[in-house]
Amino acid sequence: MHAHIQQRIQGIINNLDQLPSIPDVASKVLTMVNDPDISFKAIADEISKDQAITTNILKLCNSAYFSKGKEISSIDRAIVTLGIKEVKDIVIVAATREVLNKIVVGYDLARGELWKHGIAVAVLSKKIATIKNRKAVADIAFTGGIIHDVGKTVLALFVQNTFREILETAQARQIQFPAAEKEIMGFDHQEIGEKILTKWKFPEVLKAIVRHHHEPDKSPAEFLPIVSIVHIANTLCLMAGIGIGADGLYHELSDTAIKTLGLSNRELEELYGDMPQVLNQASGIL
């Protein structure tokens, strides 16, 4: 382990200003959606305060993936037409794009690849939730999919100089890439992602997804199903080459996740075979 790298990363975590920021409206909407006493009108007003994001949200509401056919020209209409959960997902897409849509050097991801990967994982997570009778959490799976790799944006700088060592450690010790990250740098991208979500004031379920997406076994039991959904979606996207970076497939396909969701071999292969359609749907959001 490189103590100086660990110290530098610890310094970034301690000083919240150095972690990426997103517009406040994201955490406000996430909280409001879960509060039964808050009216749709109040949520719409909160979103509409941020003019720049409102413009982007309306564009997304009318995109091929989210549109229900009718032109949507206000946040009020969006909530009525698409539903509050869908609008919440759209707010997260609009709020996180700037942080995620960039070059991630150390992981060898060109501009836009991490963003495309997140959106593809989001779309596939929602699909898996829907077909495996977990439609009630499909929106949370979608949000978790978008942001699951956010920690890579901070860790990339350090991975750039230690990549060879991390990879050699993974191979020599037969451990997956994030475990090797931790060996070499003292932190892995899942932990850093969790810290970022704490700064953003995101709920526990999303933190669990970000923290455990490579190791669902370690997830708190109450979040295991949703962590498993994002884990499977992430694995399938990587296997299909979507957002596959320097860490390649040095990851585990978790048996716990497969069993938790009750996915058969046939279902897994079919989901994998459907990746071109998933990518197609995702491109409507990019």
């Binding site: 993974a170 037969q174 997956q176 890439f177 694995t235 296997m239 497939l249 040095y250 990851h251 585990e252 396909l253 048996d255 497969i258 071999n265 897994l268 292969e269 994998y272």
Partner: peptide, 11 residues
């Protein structure tokens, strides 16, 4: 291939 997976998983 994935680095690790259960042998019974055909994927």
């Amino acid at each position: 291939s994935m680095f690790k997976f259960n042998a019974s998983v055909t994927l």
